[in-house]
Design a protein around this nucleic acid. Structure first.
Lengths: 205, 205, 205, 205
DNA sequence: TATGAATGAGACTTCATTCAT
DNA sequence: GATGAATGAAGTCTCATTCAT
């Protein structure tokens, strides 16, 4: 029979991390609605009520996972990958490369991101999150495309199209991330294609 | 307060259709888990228990919607669109074109398809459905790519990549379908790109 | 698709009988609570609502089955069996014999009777029935025992005990009726025992 | 209206016992099907959902009551009663005596046992329980009868009959236990009868 | 910090029953 | 006399959450 009171080996931060990890997996696999506190409690070896010492509600917990993932993906993966590139072609190339890297190093993060797209739209409590990521992503894409226009690689006429293509591509890749070889092959193909395309737009006029 | 018994103007077929429509929207917007019988009842003006006259369970209802959508999309939209094409370039062009058409004529169907990808994976009752659609899609893509190889447009070396690209592209488009102008712009861009690409693969060797 | 309106081959009485038969079996096997109109409808090949043309409610249907069974058992089986007997020993012997006969000729009736004991006590709608059968049975037993006292076979001192024994025995037999060989062997044993006992009570003083 | 959260005086064990007691009564009176969680909640002063802290399902609760009753009846009442007896007559005498004692000390247990016979047969979830009790009982009866054969009190020819008689008698007594004076009078009568019968079987040959 | 006891809302579903056809 | 469409009550059970310990 477990004792009451604070266990002698309780380390708040470690427990918090364990909860976040379990939640990330569960939210990715089962979605927000089907991830229950009871399940997370089982997977972390805690009682359901203990989770409330760390996260005041399920939505709060979700937000915490979301923030973590976003930080890892964006600040930790994407930004470093594209820094130091000087052309559109290079930058997109690196971006796609970083997707593959992320998908193999942090598969949970990638899958969470795919699931988040759906879940933030579905649950009003999470609506606030739904904006953040796409917005951030679009700003990034604009930067990339505008670089291409500045370097003359791309024609300004196709700006809108190119942004939509990048968005679609990214969303597609996030969504096939559960099948690593499809993901890898697609990235490889698109990288090759981009190389050619980057120079076509101007001559295409 | 509605009276007991059969209403004067009750017609089973119409009611069934109403339920299917409401379910399609709700499943698309809220997902399987968050779509409750109570909600569907409100939206169809029935008592929750009345739904059971038409569908024996929520999973059954889901399957019915799924079947409908698949029929509309695949047999009703995609197949007619690509029939009569003779080249890879043409065929992909028409395919992409049909995506836009579908998205504007049957937006609910498109959004349901996006949601289905997630929901069939998440809920074991729906697992059987999860296979059907992707399998069908991949067969279609193989046919398309193999046509390109036969006509000499594409190199056999890139078969795997091209399939993955088509898959990724399609999934991406399905997932951005909630934003029609992104969807449209992306399709437009990819159509242009495909035109060029179709002839590159061989020369790229 | 079945036609509306009265079917040309509809014979009310036959249908009524079919329902009663199905109900007897179901009430015996599943009990009152677990016997649903839907089940009866399936077993009779009717729609659930059609049953209401014959029985205004489930309780009504139960009462009808109950009355039938009681009639068959009591008036149709027991009374004829014991008529014409002149001694307690004979009468009990015939009574027990008739139990075996009933159990093999009308097993459903016997099992219904066993179930009824429980169900009439459990469901307040059926309370009225709960009285009838035991009362009738006790009157019969009193008659039998009083005959024994009149013939001098039994001592008046044991009247109360003998009634309770008959009651217990009967209830026991009804309840083991689902196992025909136990039922038969028990009756055989008790018949042999009764023969001896009938003469003991007086000498036992 | 009760407040949320843990009440000041809440003790799990006491609550568990209260639930078991309420369930025993309700299952006996109303049967498995008609005993609802809502009713038990009312009778225990809990919310229906609180019962699930103690028993994961209605069937589980039933099994717990069943196990309790069986323990009380068999191990706690019957076995001690017949231990130390050396003859068939004695042993049956004590057995019957213990039925009366049980019926007056633990009337609920006796009535539950009667109801269990029906309910375990009717509800497939409870099927596993249906075997246990009768089997155990029959083993006991075999032991008793075989003792009688060993001591020469009984003839081996009637073994089967005697077992069936004991079974029928027991089931009958269990089923009249709701009427204590019938129960008592019957036991008294049968005890007297057994005394005589025990010596008849051999001479009857 | 953690547990264990409790709640209320709401999920899916079944049931008896009713009424128009 | 039979069906098909509908209802409201209720059933079992799960969930997020709260509070005393």
């Amino acid at each position: 029979m477990p004792r009451l009171g604070r266990p002698t080996d309780a380390h708040g931060d470690a427990t918090r991390a364990r909860i976040l990890t379990a939640a990330r997996t569960a939210f990715s696999d089962l979605g927000y609605a089907a991830t229950t506190y009871r399940l997370l409690a089982e997977r972390t070896g805690l009682a359901p009520s203990a989770l409330y010492n760390y996260f005041a509600s399920k939505a709060d917990l979700y937000r915490a996972v979301h923030a973590d993932v976003q930080l890892e993906n964006y600040a930790g993966s994407i930004l470093p990958a594209i820094s130091g590139t000087e052309t559109f072609a290079d930058r997109v190339d690196r971006l796609l490369e970083s997707f593959v890297a992320m998908n193999s190093k942090l598969p949970e993060a990638a899958r969470f991101q795919a699931a988040a797209r759906t879940d933030t739209a579905r649950h009003s409590e999470l609506a606030s999150l739904g904006e953040a990521l796409p917005t951030q992503r679009r700003l990034l894409f604009e930067e990339i495309v505008d670089l291409g226009i500045a370097t003359g690689e791309l024609s300004n006429d196709h700006r809108h199209e190119l942004l939509a293509m990048l968005e679609t591509l990214t969303v597609g890749l996030i969504n096939v991330s559960a099948e690593p070889d499809v993901h890898r092959a697609a990235v490889s193909g698109f990288r090759r294609a981009i190389t050619r395309l980057s120079s076509y737009t101007n001559e295409a006029k």
